[in-house]
Write a protein that binds this DNA or RNA. Sequence first.
RNA 1: GGCCCCGUGGUGUAGAGGCCUAACACGCCACCCUGUCAAGGUGGAGAUCGGCGGUUCGAAUCCGCUCGGGGUCGCCA
Length: 606
Amino acid sequence: MRYASKMLKDSSCGELRAAHAGSTVRLAGWVHRRRDHGGLVFIDLRDAGGIVQLVFSPDELAPAVMEQAHRLRPEWVVAVEGAVRERSPETVNPNMDTGEVEVFPATCDVLNTSPTPPFFINEPSEVDEHLRLRYRYLDLRRPDVAEMIRLRHRVVRYIRDFLSERDFLEVETPTLIKSTPEGARDFLVPSRLQPGHFFALPQSPQILKELLMVAGFERYFQIARCYRDEDFRANRVAEHSQLDLEMSFVDEEDVMKLVEELYTGIAREFGKGEILRAPFPRLDYYDAMERYGIDRPDLRFGLEFVDISEAVRGTEFKVFAGALESGGQVKAIRVPGQAEMGRRDLDELTEIAKQGGAKGLAWIGVMANELRSPIAKFLSDGEVDAIKSATGAETGDLLLVVADAPSVVAASLHHVRDELGDRLGLKDPSVLSFAWVTGFPLLEWRPEENRWDASHNPFSSYRPEDEPLLETDPGSVLARQYDLTLNGSEIGGGSVRINTREAQEKVLGLMGYTREQMDERFGVLLEALEYGAPPMAGVGAGIERLLMGLTGTDNIRDVIAFPKTSAGSDPLMGAPTPVDPAQLAELGLDLTPKTRAALESAAESQ
RNA sequence: GGCCCCGUGGUGUAGAGGCCUAACACGCCACCCUGUCAAGGUGGAGAUCGGCGGUUCGAAUCCGCUCGGGGUCGCCA
């Protein structure tokens, strides 16, 4: 680390090594830990660069300085000047990067003090997440927490360098844009200059980046903040950053090749794990749904689904027969060696299956001479043999079976498979399993709204050979869409875009938009497509989810410096808050009586 | 909006109707201590158990509501 000459420090704590022995350094940082022996005082001094041990010795120091040393407490800010000395062999600490040396301060200035922090900064410990967020500035002092934020910087810098070297132009797009009531709920920002009118925060810069392609930049990227006013999950927050990227005169292969090269590079440079397969495997959407019940399967382990509908067709067992009669299916997961799984575990797996909509989870333990299963008595020998041969089940294996409509079977068995991956320790944290998923349908039917909707985004193009199907069978049209997944998480997605007004209007028309609605919501894009819009394709890829994969955390807040809670509040700054009525008046806004009453009763109960 | 889980000194936990005048570890404070690095030793302070209401002779413990947090379904083009 380099420091300006006037600074209180000329070295970083973490950089000192045996080679520095004999030199005099000025250090400044936080008291990480103290070990006061009454005579000798050891202080671990921490700064952004690491930790080094200071030794205050009464043999060498004036009593006033020793007194100062005894007073030091954790998280006090101090500046010292002293000699770096090599430690004697028996006192070397191999657990510290700087363990070969120690610094003997001649002076010690207390720059600031600190109360006892609300949680341990100097040792890793589980702390209530709300408390951590409330004191995030202290939480971020913890070296392991800080490391996530440092890694984030390095990854983003890698992305910027990689793309800049390949002639991509970084362009910032507005954060106050037009609201389009499509997809996720918008965050709205009222306009003071035009009361009653609202901006929206962008869910992604999708339309703007297409306009940049029409503008002729050919290669654009941005680390773009995206906002969606929806409920959160372990890997979903209100505002997230995405690598937004768009290219002209390319097709899906060009974009996938570029992204794959970028992500391979990032994984090799920063990932804790090995890339499972490179080049990244490609899965067909329908195939993935058949085998894993999800369009982003975790490929670190097998446990694929087997369709045993034919094996049990005509069965007496009412649950299976009923599902098949109503057009459903019966699918199984074969779990090797788990035939004797405990009843409690099986019950818990059943509950998990129910979360996916299944009414239950049938289980069959294949024992040497019999079946261990509550449904064994309903199955004929022939059916059992057929199930065994379809699944390849051998003695000692467990079969978990769901019978229902295909969408329910997929969702339920996916949950079961995912849980098995956790419980059986099949999700190797040292493996990064990237995969592309392609072959998505362009449209999906929304029965409750009686219309087609874009399965990804309304600007995705479709396979040219499917064009006639738009008229006859829109549901079977395949999109030129590609998703990137990592260890069971969708970390990016993109498509070849529609680049003619005619095609865009046709697709929007299928989605139920009238000409007026199209013009009102997408008029600018439609117009721009008329003016020589080039062929274009791109991706949006979540930065947080990538970092989660690289670090192995399952909490998205770990990779965000100042995250919000899952309820969308900010315990640090205390946002959101009510605002002064005068502010609302200026914006032409008023609260509903119901909202106002709720605010008042909340204020009273304070 | 539905469902599940959590909320006890500064932190992390124990506690399952009376044994709780709330325990343990770490931290904190004081004293002792010259080579530790999770320093050690001795002593001490510190929580009415998220909040409100109820059941009960009696509630940290049971019930209801509520607040906050975590997860999940819906939602997230």
